[in-house]
């Protein structure tokens, strides 16, 4: 069985929003990484990941998200997340991801704070 992750990109003047739908596992994480690295190569330095349609993540997928965050920090940029389920929020905190990326309750607040 496969649980394919879908990623949609919304380019903004000052960055981009990635919308994920589905399971963030190793394959899903790599799909997000491909899209994020394309945006970074194009000069995007502010990235918001909206996980409103993702209900399940695993530790391998999160490890890939941490790699993406590290690459963005190396480039002087920032990544934030919004619309996490409570269990995904808790998992991000345990995995240490919350130390390097801001987590917002909703997209409106995130866009305002990030200047998107």
């Amino acid at each position: 069985m496969t649980e394919e992750l879908k990623v949609a990109v919304d380019r903004k003047d000052n960055g981009a929003v990635l919308y994920t739908k589905g399971y963030i596992n190793n394959v899903g994480g790599e799909e997000i990484a491909v899209r994020a690295y394309e945006l970074m190569d194009a000069g995007v330095r502010t990235l918001l990941l909206n996980l409103r349609d993702t209900k399940i993540v695993n530790s391998i997928g999160i490890s890939i998200l941490i790699e993406i965050i590290e690459k963005m920090i190396d480039k002087g940029g920032k990544i934030a997340f919004c619309c996490l389920t409570p269990v995904i929020h808790k998992t991000f905190q345990i995995m240490g991801l919350a130390n390097y990326a801001t987590i917002f309750d909703n997209e409106e607040n995130a866009m305002k704070e990030l200047g998107l």
Partner: peptide
Amino acid sequence: RPAPGVSHKRGRGLQLIEAH
């Protein structure tokens, strides 16, 4: 296992199980 909240790429599975 790294401390909770410290960024670490792998080896968190058992920690997550115990937390959840």
